[in-house]
């Protein structure tokens, strides 16, 4: 493969890919414009929410070098996409306590409701 400058092979590859890429882009545009598969309710934008408290805890884990231009699997801009692990905990609500029997109830069994029993 020849080339009279350092970037020539990359430019050539780009030009080869440009035609098929344009076809794919047209196909994707038609799908998006006609079918609207990604249209959805956006509660994060339209639901009235009061943030009572927001706490944060960030800690430097390590310094590294990478070839990737952005974080792998970044999802902070797609709030509707659930994280790899998610769960919901519903706090149980305690039943109201049974009413305590009064001294009167205990002392006078005939005074209250006799309840079911043998005739």
């Amino acid at each position: 493969m020849g080339g009279n400058s350092d970037g020539s092979p990359l430019i050539a590859l780009f030009l080869f890919a440009l035609g098929p890429g344009a076809g794919v882009a047209v196909w994707m545009w038609i799908q998006g414009h006609y079918r609207n598969r990604s249209a959805r309710y956006r509660p994060e934008e339209v639901v009235r929410t009061h943030v009572v408290d927001l706490r944060g805890d960030d800690a430097l884990v390590r310094r590294l070098r990478t070839r990737s231009g952005s974080i792998d699997g970044g999802n902070e801009l797609r709030p509707e996409q659930r994280a790899r692990v998610w769960r919901v905990i519903e706090a149980p609500v305690e039943a109201p306590p049974e009413p305590h029997p009064t001294a009167e109830d205990l002392a006078d069994p005939d005074g209250g409701d006799p309840g079911p029993g043998p005739a």
């Binding site: 929410t49 009061h50 009572v52 927001l54 706490r55 944060g56 430097l60 590294l64």
Partner: peptide, 19 residues
């Protein structure tokens, strides 16, 4: 090659959500 500081990130939010 990109020089990166990687953090463990945690957020806790108390929310009141209406409708």
């Amino acid at each position: 090659e990109y020089k990166v500081d990687r953090y463990a990130v945690a957020r806790e939010l108390d929310l009141e959500i209406d409708d």
